[in-house]
Amino acid sequence: MTTIRYANDKFELEPNESVLECLTNHGVPVPFSCRSGVCQTCLMRATGGKLPETSQQGLKDSLKLQNYFLACVCYPDADLEVALPDDKDVQAVIPATVLSLKLLNAEIMHVELVCHEPIDYRAGQFINLFQHQTLGRSYSLASVPHEDDHLHLHVRRLPQGRVSGWIHDELRPGETVEIRGPGGDCFYIPGNNDQGLILIGTGSGLAPLYGIIRDALSQGHTGPIHLFHGSRDLNGLYLTGELRDLVNQYSNFNYVPCLSGEDVPHGYVAGRAHDVAFQQIPNLKNWRLFLCGHPDMVKTAKMKAFLAGASMKDIYADAFNVSKSS
């Protein structure tokens, strides 16, 4: 008998019954619509057990790798532990100790964390960092699992930002915080090594992109990799030295720092990052895109990239939405 475990319950799967039917028959409120594996409304995540391949058909690769599946077409042969995608209990809280804090520019703090338990993540995903039990914020990971020993975050100080203000002003090396994660599907997927990559970020949107770039390069990506990092003025850019070192080290990596303000010194390109990117590379057919940072930029760039020929499945985005309570 195959058992489906959900939250604290265990249900026995009837013959020819899908995971969706099993759960909804027992009163679990799983949203669904087409019941034929197309609409993806019944997206769930396996937290234990092995998924049948057909239950992941049509999902984005990044979701497949995180064990997401479609409950309506999932007929497992063995026991499965499942959760809804937004179930908070999917991930346990992990304590992490602050190893170092270093300003990258006037408003962005590099935070290095040592996790007390191993955390399985991909460069470009985010974690939630908690100031206390009910106050947490999402921060993207700039570190790369097989390259860096610890977690790296770029925390931008927001006006009246409660958590970012606390990180900048009060948090000290040696202190231990709680994190939960990882989450997000904006990361590099190996394969298709010669595909061109375009990464566009504003402000601390560079954090996930810096991880993704180094991840792709270390996994032997041979296609061109173009990074467009944008800010209003020079003070908003950071890691420029590290990025120029990468340019010298890898012939397929190109770094374009963009300034949207009036003062644009030699070596920088005038204009907003996404405008510059789409001007330099107007036809985006077959390119893979990563868009991170300001929500308006991400939204506009997503639409423009798609209309310029990029396939929807090749556009990875992470909009940095600011919490309403700051």
Binding site: S33, C34, S36, V38, C39, Q40, K302, M303, F306, M312
Partner: peptide, 20 residues
């Protein structure tokens, strides 16, 4: 856009005479 693309896919599947 992601959700909309999924809806478009469901619509096309139906219009193509597929399962829906």
């Amino acid at each position: 856009m992601e959700k909309q693309a999924a809806k478009q896919k469901a619509f096309l599947t139906m219009a193509f005479g597929g399962p829906h």
